[in-house]
Write a protein that binds this DNA or RNA. Structure first.
Lengths: 236, 236
DNA sequence: TCAAAAGTGTTTTTTATACACCCATGT
DNA sequence: ACATGGGTGTATAAAAAACACTTTTGA
């Protein structure tokens, strides 16, 4: 059958906002753009969608190219379609956020991108509308994590409660009462306590936990409430 | 500057899932597709994005073409990019959901589309992946409305509490205790009681209310909880 | 022995839920 | 006068928040 006539076709890109957690702070992974325009400026990792791949496929490809990781938590955020967002040629961009265990990407697998982790507050200016995209991704992750246990994706398989609490405190820039936090965590029954301790953070050491993966998957959409007064902290 | 070379360009469409409420049930507005392929099959209202317009612009244009309405509540849902989703030619579709006061679109402004309102459970089979899009839109509206006061967009400026409760009960397919519902509503301080009554639904008549627009806008992102046990009713 | 971080319970407050009767009016 | 849907209050249960001290152990 004939193609649709009299319609304009556009470039389609995916851009990934890659989050990691270093134990203290949430960070994002940025690259130096490798081609004109804006060559060597800081940018999100992205790429054009190829004829045979889906959007999710393109996002995964781009992420794997950068980090070497597969099976990463990746979620579509939204499409950006301003006609002038790319000065060279109209390009629609579909953004994804990725949550990775930062320790799996410490050895810079592909130096070709000159990737670097940045604290959110220290992130450099980005090309095009990438700054706006990062802001939207931050809002999305805060919103989603207030209700669903996605932040575990940022931690190693074994993690401690203090680590987890640091993560929540940093994401929401707030102090959480340790006893209430543990009570809420326990109520989810999502965690399994291990015998082993992490002694790196203190003399006493903190017990490791791991996720109960079955319950994690089964309860993923259940509403949680790790964050006190979430509506005061989250803007949509 | 030169265009990006060696990249494939694609068609981009927007598709709108238009919701309305007839006082009893949530409905969606569908049209008969006017061109090949799948001509005369039921479809979402959509259209190709034009060179000079943004995605939001395209969605608004498409919606205005169909309904004659402007300033409608419209929110991007997600991008669908399966390479084979349109059999003729690869087309990326960005979906939007629209919430309109159904009474503003009773006179079929544009008969050219053969638009009809359908109960969600009676909706016909749709072309391409539009059925999947409708399912995703239903989930989105349920999810969002459990936390934010968007359903008011489906009602006229003046509405009654029983109307509003019917709406919530239909959206969540549940029974809500009337006294608890009113208590939660009152707590939001979003409603202003009018002197006038709607006598169409009963002999006693039900007081009209209107939204306090300032508080509505200010509190739009605050988490509400009109729905008992939302996590049991909402699937993400 | 002491500094530093981990871990543990109880009380109070707030929020959600369950529940049943009277009211106003048109017919 | 009665049938129909609208409107109201209270008691109980559950969840969230506030709050401070003891434990462990390496240096």
């Amino acid at each position: 059958m004939k193609k649709y006539t009299d319609q304009t076709r556009f470039l389609i890109a995916v851009d990934c906002i890659v989050f990691g957690f270093d134990g203290e702070h949430l960070k994002i992974l940025l690259i130096k753009r490798g081609f004109e325009p804006e060559k060597d400026k800081w940018s999100l990792m992205g790429g054009f969608v190829r004829p045979e791949e889906s959007l999710d496929g393109a996002a995964n490809r781009v992420l794997t190219q950068l980090t070497g990781l597969e099976g990463v938590y990746l979620e579509q955020i939204q499409a950006y379609g301003d006609p002038l967002r790319d000065p060279i040629e109209r390009t629609l961009s579909v953004t994804y956020f990725a949550l990775i265990d930062i320790h799996k990407y410490e050895t810079q697998i592909s130096d070709q991108y000159h990737a670097e982790w940045f604290l959110l507050k220290d992130a450099p200016e980005l090309i095009f509308d990438h700054g706006e995209m990062v802001e939207a991704a931050k809002k999305k992750i805060r919103y989603k994590a207030a209700l669903h246990p996605i932040l575990f994706e940022l931690l190693p398989k074994k993690f401690t409660i203090p680590q987890l609490q640091n993560l929540y405190e940093d994401v929401y820039n707030t102090q959480i009462d340790n006893r209430n936090f543990i009570r809420k965590l326990t109520a989810t029954k999502l965690l399994i306590k291990l015998a082993e301790k992490d002694k790196s953070g203190s003399k006493k050491g903190a017990f490791y936990f791991k996720l109960d993966k079955k319950k994690y998957k089964a309860n993923f959409q259940a509403f949680l409430n790790f964050i006190p007064n979430p509506d005061k902290l989250i803007s949509v």
